[in-house]
Design a protein around this nucleic acid. Sequence first.
RNA 1: GCGGUUGUGGUGAAGUGGUUAACACAGCGGAUUGUGGCUCCGUCAUUCGCGCGUUCGAAUCGCGUCAGCCGCCCCA
Length: 429
Amino acid sequence: MAYQIPRGTQDLLPEKSYQWQALERTLREFCYLYNYDEIRTPVFEHTNVFKRENDSSDMVNKEMYTFQLENSKTSLTIRPEGTAGVVRSFVENKMYANPDLPVKLYYMGPMARHERPQKGRLRIFNQFGIECLGNKSPFTDVETIVLAFSILKALGLNDLKVCLNTLGDDASRAAYRQALQTYFEPYVDTLCSDCKRRYAQNPLRILDCKVDHDKECMKNVPKMKDYLNDESREYFETVCHLLDELEIPYAVDDQLVRGLDYYTHTVFEIVSMNQEMGAQSTVLAGGRYDHLIPYFGGPEQMSGIGWALGMERLLIALEAEGITLEEKPGLDAYLMCLDESARMYAFKILTQLRAYGYRCDMDMLQRSFKAQFKAVDRSHAKFALIIGEDERKNHLITIKNIEKKTQESISQDQLIEYLDHYFVDEDHH
RNA sequence: GCGGUUGUGGUGAAGUGGUUAACACAGCGGAUUGUGGCUCCGUCAUUCGCGCGUUCGAAUCGCGUCAGCCGCCCCA
């Protein structure tokens, strides 16, 4: 093989494309219902849109596809996530001036991260996400979670777990961070090498370390909730209360620390509990960010919240639960051309059928009668239209109902009427 | 970035140093010049991910490389 697709990328092949279209349709319908509008931002941005000061995440520091063209000083990065570009656009286009805040946006498209591929993880993968910008209210937080949960439920998923936590505001977080460092100080030497690094950089990450998870020192770690100031605690309690009111099931998980550094207050994840998911079972994740809009030059104090779902992972979760969204639909009719002298006649009929809105195709390989009939079967056509020398001479079409195995010859100008009768009157369409 | 595992036609898969690379499915042609899904016959990989090496001889052995899968890290 001379050419092959780059590692960790994949072609969306025709047999799967109907699944994707059905998924995209459902996502758009829900956004329409919740009054979210679509935004499309570039697949690459200036590198500093993603690489922000103080960001310690692997995604930003080790996994970005960053490039610089030979004759250019501009460093560009293929987007590893959707939020930064959307917030950049929100500010750049002064959408914060919209009288009706929050501005509610959704996006979908490919993201690129240089990671080692495995189940549920690709180097180019597709995310669908929403961002709700310019309003800070527990109702807004809950609206986004309800939207997320409703979409996954509507798609048919059952083995779901909604995990929820709060990171508090800056003051709460700083206090907690300090408390963790004080707590872990005597234990630093016993922690894994990654956690030694985390201890200094981002001690919150020690909490969800799998290596150190069962160690003695993990039992009495300080809890975030004990370091929340009143405002942060009340905000989170209201979010929980509203979810209870709406009967959205969730579990508060105080070990939940999102990977991206920009989150504040509410963070959440929806995980598929299905055994077949492999190690990457988080299907959807998001949270509130108080600092991103100001960072990009928008109004101080303006907050946003959003989430993203991995479309490939979602499709894995659906498959794991035996859910097929949509198969390729069969043809209305397949034209069999039995004699080359009749090809033009058949081709005109094909074109006419399409002009009338019928989904059809014809044999182009001059195959045997038998082979053409097999093609009819493979196309799952309702009708086979058999056209040869006799039909052409007499302006006839032999039409065979595949399911009923009945067939008759009709005149060429009766064909549309014949099909309309079948598809419209008998409601087979 | 680290570890494990795999790589033979459109698909599944045998072959572990010796002239023509099993077999099955799918495809195509025919038995049955215009009525399929059954049956039978025929046909379908100058080539075994790619490169280099060992050898008289390599799909089979060695090295390298690329890729798939699974896990770690991390994340959707």
